[in-house]
Simulated assay, not measured.
Amino acid sequence: MKEQTHIGMNRTGLHMSPFDAGSMQSPVPASMTPATPGDDTALAEMRSTYITSAEPLGSVPIPGTIKGAIATGISALSGHQPQLLLDKLGERLAFERTGTRLYDALITKFEATQDESTSMTLADLQQIRQDEARHFAIVGEAIESIGGDPTSQTPCADLVGVESMGLMQAVCDPRTTIAQSLHAILVAELADQAGWEMLIALAQDHNQSAMVTDFNVALAEERTHLQRVQQWFEEATIGKAISAGASIDDIGDANPSQIH
């Protein structure tokens, strides 16, 4: 079984209205042609004005505790940028929170649709959801361990909240199928893995060995999540039998006549 995409009355293409298409593509009469050819120069100039005059997206809050002030001072004296580490920790905290909510939404859709197009089970989704929630807690504890405030929103946390908004909309949309929802989850898992790798490198640079240990465990779990979601997405899209025997890359190199 694979994702069922049906043919319907899709009117978005030009070919659906050939008579109107002809008039749209015919040359514009000289009387209607602008005296000066238009381009996006004015738009680019307006955007440039906003860019050069804009304030930063936000700021990393100053330490609210004595412990945080001391930790920040020591880190700065050592030549590090403690505000960068706190910003990226805030980013990961925000993303893991979204990840938990994404799986909450996918669990609801899976239960409602009773979809059997993949080997995915409710227990699988609940386990990943628990992992995401635990990762959120790990990052929150890491922020507190260096005197930061996990309830504050850093610039990168703000950014990732906006970025992930579309993923939440895709999974929560009642019209999207399990396969389409898994595509959105796959995008999140790819970004999640890259984010953990960056955070581990940053923690190593700041000599945060305890963080590195905890974050490596989280990264290993996220890699497992990515592999499982990719498998489920392939199963939902191209079928269980094909997915079990070949990856998407293998199928792309295969003779089309061999794919059934």
Rank of each mutant, 00 (worst) to 15 (best):
M1E: 00
E3T: 07
E3D: 07
E3P: 02
Q4D: 01
T5V: 06
T5N: 04
H6N: 09
H6D: 05
I7N: 04
G13E: 06
G13K: 12
L14S: 14
F19H: 05
F19C: 01
D20A: 08
A21G: 05
S23A: 04
M24W: 01
Q25G: 10
Q25H: 14
P27E: 05
V28W: 08
S31V: 02
S31F: 04
A35C: 01
T36Q: 13
P37L: 02
G38W: 05
E45R: 15
Y50M: 11
T52I: 09
T52D: 13
G58T: 03
P61L: 06
P61R: 12
K67Q: 14
I70H: 13
G73F: 03
I74Q: 12
S75Q: 10
H80N: 14
Q81C: 05
L93Y: 04
T100N: 08
L102P: 03
D104P: 08
I107L: 12
E111F: 00
A112F: 06
E116Y: 12
E116S: 14
S117W: 01
D124S: 15
Q126E: 12
Q126Y: 08
Q126S: 08
R129G: 04
Q130W: 09
D131V: 08
A133Y: 11
H135F: 05
F136T: 05
I143A: 07
D149Q: 13
P150C: 06
T154Y: 10
P155S: 15
C156Y: 04
D158M: 10
D158V: 03
D158A: 10
L159F: 12
V160N: 03
G161S: 13
M165N: 11
Q169N: 11
D173I: 01
I178N: 06
L182T: 07
V187C: 04
A191S: 12
D192C: 13
A194F: 10
G195R: 15
W196P: 00
L199C: 09
A201L: 14
A203C: 15
D205V: 02
Q208A: 06
A210C: 03
A210Y: 09
V212Y: 10
D214Q: 15
F215T: 00
N216S: 15
V217W: 02
A218E: 04
E221F: 00
L226K: 14
F233M: 06
T237L: 10
I238P: 03
A244M: 02
A246Q: 13
I248H: 07
D250K: 03
D253W: 12
A254V: 00
A254S: 12
N255F: 03
Q258I: 01
